[in-house]
Nucleic acid binder design. Structure first.
Length: 321
DNA sequence: TCCATTTGACCTGT
DNA sequence: ACAGGTCAAATGGA
């Protein structure tokens, strides 16, 4: 299906003069809370939950017969259990699922990343996120998010984007346009890009791609525009950054987790774990520190979520919890 | 009518 | 306090 190529203007200005500001709500000290919880258990719960969700996704995409394969209901139960236990580890107050949703300490309801949907009977199966009148309420991406910068004579690439904002940037002649993946809501794809005309060459566009596409258009791949002239690439995500300064793509994960791959005791071959022992236990047994384990778990989660590792068959017994 | 863009509002991070 | 990022109502084109 060919994507519509809307003609949008990168030149119209978007100036939002500051109006009366609301009182800033009190901020939770998340780091302080995290320091007190059992990181090891939390990481394992989240890893379990992610793996179950992944299996569920595969099951939904390729439904299998009644030959003894895992049932959807069981997987859903696993995901929910992992999330519940993970939230419990963060503290009883954090596990407030249900109608109320997350709340700030001041009691004000905040819209967080929320992929629950409401059906509009007048619009058939058209689904939109449940929206509240919370304009501008969002969770800002971490600055360490994976980014890639390109310069191109066109703003177009192989993906379908939807413009969601434009801002005048200080000391910049041209406004910056903000795009998100068209599949943000139907597939939860978090890829965004920012496009700005270059001051020294208005025929070219400076484009910053943030986050990788996870939509089906290019499943699990980082797919930079083929039509652009790459003059610079940078990867800010610490997981992806290489020490030698070379760039990498999410398709090329062989450079990940060097510490882990160097540990012969892990029984790692071609990025696979010896499944006889769960990785976190191994890392603790080998004397890794919490921060190191956390870092490696992040690597593994990313690798696994991209289908490059097959080690997430953690064999945990109940005593783990 | 549907859907993408525009743009004011309002949030977060520094 | 401010710059920049995101939301969502308003708008407009097909």
């Amino acid at each position: 299906m060919s994507q519509p190529r809307p003609h949008f203007s990168l030149l119209s200005t978007h100036t939002a003069p500051p109006k009366q500001k609301r009182k800033k709500p009190l901020q939770m000290d998340a780091a302080g809370i995290c320091n007190q919880i059992d990181k090891r258990k939390l990481m394992m719960e989240l890893a379990q939950g992610q793996e179950s969700a992944r299996r569920l996704q595969a099951l939904l995409q390729n439904p299998v017969g009644e030959d003894g394969s895992e049932l959807v209901g069981q997987l859903v139960e696993k995901v929910l259990r992992s999330l519940e236990l993970g939230l419990d580890l963060l503290g009883p107050s954090s596990n407030q699922t249900g109608e109320n949703g997350p709340r700030s300490p001041g009691g004000e309801q905040h819209q967080v990343t929320d992929f629950s949907f409401e059906e509009d009977p007048d619009k058939g199966d058209k689904k939109r996120p449940v929206t509240r009148d919370k304009r501008g309420c969002y969770k800002r991406r971490k600055s360490s998010q994976t980014t890639r910068v390109t310069v191109s004579s066109t703003t177009e690439d192989d993906h379908a984007w939807r413009k969601y904002g434009q801002k005048c940037i200080l000391n910049s002649k041209f406004p910056r346009s903000y795009f998100r993946c068209t599949h943000k809501y139907d597939q939860g794809c978090k890829a965004t890009k920012q496009v700005q005309m270059m001051e020294d060459d208005p025929c070219k566009y400076h484009t910053t791609y943030i986050g990788a596409h996870t939509c089906n258009r290019h499943p699990m791949t980082w797919d930079p525009p083929h039509t652009s002239d790459h003059v610079n690439e940078e990867i800010n995500d610490p997981v992806e950054a290489k020490s030698d300064g070379s760039t990498t793509t999410i398709d090329n994960l062989s450079g990940f987790c060097p510490w882990l791959l160097e540990k012969p005791a892990f029984g790692l071959q071609e990025g696979r774990f010896d499944q006889s022992e769960d990785p976190v236990s191994m890392m603790y047994r080998l004397g890794m520190k919490d921060e190191e384990i956390q870092s490696e778990m992040e690597c593994m989660l990313i690798g696994n979520s991209l289908g490059h590792y097959g080690f997430c068959e953690f064999h945990l017994d109940e005593s783990y919890f």
